[in-house]
Structure formats: C-alpha cells, structure tokens
C-alpha cells in the first residue's frame, strides 16, 4: 500500500466503522423489532467493510481502538448522534447513496479497493433500498413523521458537501459523483413529499473537516464509549 492508498483506506474505513457504531447504538431502542434487526444488519455490513479497509492500512484493532479523535478521517456526517429514527433514516439515505456511487466507481477500477468495492456495493444496494423505503413512508406519512423527516433533512444537509471532497489516493470524478448523488437524493425526497433543503452544502456554516481530522463534539464521547473496553483491558480475549 502506498501512503495515499493508506490514507484513502483510512477515510473509507473510518466512515464505515463510525457509522457502524452509531447504528449499533439502536440495539435495544429501535421502534420495532424488525428495524432493530435491520439496523444491526446494516451496521454489521459496515463493520465488515471497515475491517477489510482498516486492515489494508494497518492493524485493524489498533486503528479502531487506539487512535485519538484527531487521527480519525471519517466524514462528520457519520459521527453525528443517531437522534430520532427520522434522523437516522435521513443519514442512511444520504450516506448509503454516496457509498453506492463511490463503491460502484471503485469496483470498476483495478486499484487496491476494487475487490472490496465490488463486494460491498451489492450489500449497500440493500442499505439504499431500506433508506429509500423508509424515507417514502415517513416523508409521505403522518404530519408528525413528515415534520421530523423535514427537520432531519435540514439539520444534516450541511454535512453532505463534505462527502465530495476529493480523497487522496482515489482517482475519481468527484463532481460527477456529486451530481449523481444530488439527482438520486433529490428524486427520493421529492417522491417522499419532502422539500429539498435550500441551505448551503459548502463554505461557511457547513461541516467539512472530518477528512482532515477535525471532528464535532459528539464524536469524542462516542469514541470514549467505543474504545473504553479495549483500552481498559489491553490484549484481552475470550
């Protein structure tokens, strides 16, 4: 692995790891049993991707459990707390569409990520499907579910520009990726009778330094919980 490929493995691996952990937080709290199982399944897919990607960059356990906050390269979108179910679904929509496009592109190449991407893109298709169905159902649902979905879209919109910052080591047409993403997401939101947020996706007042290691406040608390066991009992196994 070259240094830039290493950096890309960390960026993609951290996205998958952190979102996996956030989705895992729903265990025991999801609105219905089927959703609990669904979110745990999606989390497991993401954890599998994270393990492969982080193993490309080094020792997966050391990278997951022993890095400090500023060494993580994930998007700020994935580190946000799950919030209510609407917020989790909107994030799933934004992220899974991004991941499907990204892996779809990487799968066609011959780079170090092609094998993983070709495999994971098939799993992510189910994540997109899940997010789209719920977006339609909640957006075009009751007054309350519509209100919550609208609020979640508005709140998370400013985190979506960051997804298309070029990542060193990934030779992709990021502008084209972003166009396709906007087209897909806008289409789903409109069908769900939700208004596409007008707020900015780049520049001032938007998020966008996760790839440089700058994270939002909730991330530190999430890491503390995620890393606590490993740090308290170094080398433990069962």
């Amino acid at each position: 692995m070259t240094t830039t490929a290493n950096a890309a493995a960390l960026a993609l691996g951290d996205d998958a790891l952190v979102l996996s952990h956030r989705l895992g937080e729903w265990a025991g709290h999801a609105p219905v049993l089927e959703e609990e199982v669904a979110l745990a399944n999606i989390a497991l897919d993401l954890l599998g991707q994270a393990r492969v990607l982080l193993s490309l960059a080094g020792d997966e356990d050391e990278l997951a459990y022993l890095r400090e906050e500023r060494s993580f390269r994930n998007l700020q979108l994935v580190e946000q707390p799950g919030g209510d179910f609407a917020r989790t679904i909107v994030r799933q929509l934004f992220f899974s569409v991004y991941q499907r496009l990204l892996y779809g592109e990487l799968a066609t190449g011959s780079g170090p990520f092609a094998a993983l991407a070709a495999k994971a893109v098939k799993e992510v298709a189910y994540h997109v499907d899940h997010a789209e169905h719920w977006t339609l159902r909640l957006g075009d649902g009751t007054e309350e579910s519509h209100r919550r979905m609208s609020r979640a879209c508005e709140e998370l919109w400013r985190f979506t520009g960051e997804m298309f910052q070029p990542v060193d080591g990934l030779d992709l047409d990021w502008r084209a990726l972003e166009r396709e993403w906007l087209e897909s997401v806008t289409g789903v939101l409109e069908r769900a009778t939700l208004t596409v947020p007008e707020g900015p996706r780049s520049g001032a007042w938007t998020a966008g330094a996760g790839r440089q290691g700058v994270h939002t406040e909730p991330f530190g608390r999430m890491l503390a919980e995620m890393q606590h066991l490993h740090r308290s009992h170094p080398g433990a196994s069962w």
Partner: peptide, 29 residues
C-alpha cells in the same frame, strides 16, 4: 439490479407464491 423484485418468492411451508416482504433484514445478514 442487485435487488430483484420481479419474481415471486415461494412459501417454503405451503408452496404458495402469494408471499409478502416483512423486512429486508432478518436473523442473519
């Protein structure tokens, strides 16, 4: 596509093709 929806899934108990999706995710991935 990777998520085919066209063909019906047959019930393994009674053989009926009239079956409905409850959840895309179940006891294992």
């Amino acid at each position: 596509g990777p998520v085919p929806l066209a063909l019906s899934v047959r019930c393994p108990h009674c053989g009926s093709t009239e079956t409905e999706l409850l959840s895309r995710f179940s006891s294992t991935a």
